[in-house]
Amino acid sequence: MKMPNDIRPDGRKFDELRSIEIEAGVLDQADGSARVKWGLHTKIISVDPRKEAKIRNLAEEYYITLRGKEGKKLLVEVPEKILPHIEDDLGSYNVVADGFKGNVAVVAVHGPREPIPRHVGDPYRSVVRFRYTMAPFSVPERKRPAPGRREVEISKVCKEALQRIVFAEEFPMTVIDVFAEILAADAGTRVTALTAASVALADAGIPMRDLVSAVAAGRAFGHIVADLTKFEEDAPDAVDVPMAVVPGTEEFVLLQMDGRVTKREMDDIIELGLAKAKEVAELQRKALKEKYARVVENE
């Protein structure tokens, strides 16, 4: 069976986000916090090992991965949404476990608090600081714990995006420290971290103009798509455009891009990203409401 024309390698539609689960107020020691799980729900299935060659072929086309042998069975991880489309190719299989393949970020906000060192303080406003770090086990090859140039750059653009929405002039000579830890990565970690960060800021009770809602859009395998996976980021024609939007005013406060596109494609990517960022905003609001419902319940 050939892949249907309107389905992506993980079974999503072109404009469909991965599953996004946001929880606010997950840490006790932080003034505000959030965890975001952003990815694909998968099934770990076991198949006859004689099908190994066939499955390796399928893995060229679909976002499925071999997980090795367990006893006499071959384990394969398959996104739930693609499973019905490749069932004929797989033949008989058993579901062994549920899995999750995606980004996991935990974000904490400390502050507004005293600036240390003192010279970072601004007499007219609070200064937002952002530190994005990755756990060594969050990526395929163990990453050394010290932050690299990539993490420093991501931290900078995220900090600038958040500075825009905080009513910073209310807290002169303070800093608002935002710390984001990536525990699992599968393309789109900066938008996952930034989405979590704006929920954590709201959870900390810091006055804000609006949320910042982040998402990536781009091109893969000849189509303009929302929220690329690692598989799509590795496509020969891949273009990835992470962006962050203030949903109420439709301002873009983070925008990066790498790849090669026409102006027309770029316009389409931006338009798709904006629409998807608004979906993310809905999920952020829901998470914040759920947290306060929980607080009221416990009283």
Binding site: L27, R142, L183, D186
Partner: peptide, 24 residues
């Protein structure tokens, strides 16, 4: 087994003390 790139992983919440561990 919650962080898919880790070869083994665990998240522990001991009375609010939270630690994530991953093996590579």
């Amino acid at each position: 087994n919650i962080y898919h790139h880790a070869d083994g992983s665990a998240f522990v919440d001991l009375g609010g003390t939270k630690v994530a561990a991953g093996v590579k």
